[in-house]
Amino acid sequence: MNALLTSAVAGLTAGGTYALLGVCAVFTYRLVAVVNFTGAAIGTAGTFVLIALFEAGFPIWPSVLAGIAAGTLTGVAIGYIMTRWFGEASASTKAAVTVALLVGLIAVGLRLTGGQHPHNMPDLFPGSAFRLAGVEVTIASVLTIGLAVLFTILSDLFLNRTKIGLNLRALADRPMAAELLGVRVQLLSLLVWGMTGAFTTFALMIIAPQRSPNFMTLSLLVVPALAAALIGVFRSFWWTLAGGIALGIVEGLASSIDSVSQYRSAIPFLVVLAVLLWSQREARWDEAR
């Protein structure tokens, strides 16, 4: 029993990361109408700036800040490509473009970071925060989940209480009508890309020490993230949040059961499949768009 709880709790850090990446994906989809496959890769780019600086002997926290800045810029750059050249494209074309960009980012990233070569990833938040039923809950897991909750609450407040948030909702509703009223559409879109870039980078920095920190593995964290977003039907921040955490826990549990542990990376795929089948039957997919 305790062993099971231990492995469930061990999945929390991953769960928090999936949740945050998922919420960022929903944010991007709702506001700039792009299903973004590069979400995790953007954060990975920032994380590797941190690793490079750290390995070169720079102090840790300035390196973290530089990494987050780099992630933000990468997000803005991808956003620029998407708004400048694919602003008028259909949702499926945009998604396909981000897949292509993901492949490009991974190729360049692997080349620049020496492929599978192991890196010395600093553990930003070592140690445990508290004990839950005799099981250590790590600071990292509390932090990723906290960050995901914070991002969810902040986006809610931001969208509903500020003028920029209001403009963003108008933009999401009817981009051309917003632009005709003088709303700075391009600037706002880049803001969305930059914000999600910053948060994603920080989340990946926290989870990286627990994964093999190579560019490809980290970039592919977008798969469970999109699975979480799908649980929220690309609309609800809170369902996405819960979905991401649940995915992490299920993965943790699966890793403790020998017979299924080899297949645990297929879990997000099974979830995607299940959600899609269910939503087809309920015909909720259209409504969600």
């Binding site: 209001l166 909702r169 108008a170 999401a172 509703d173 009817r174 051309m176 009508a177 917003a178």
Partner: peptide, 11 residues
């Protein structure tokens, strides 16, 4: 072309 999801005043 009203912003459908926004209220009158928000529009």
């Amino acid at each position: 072309t009203v912003f459908r999801q926004l209220t009158t005043e928000e529009n």
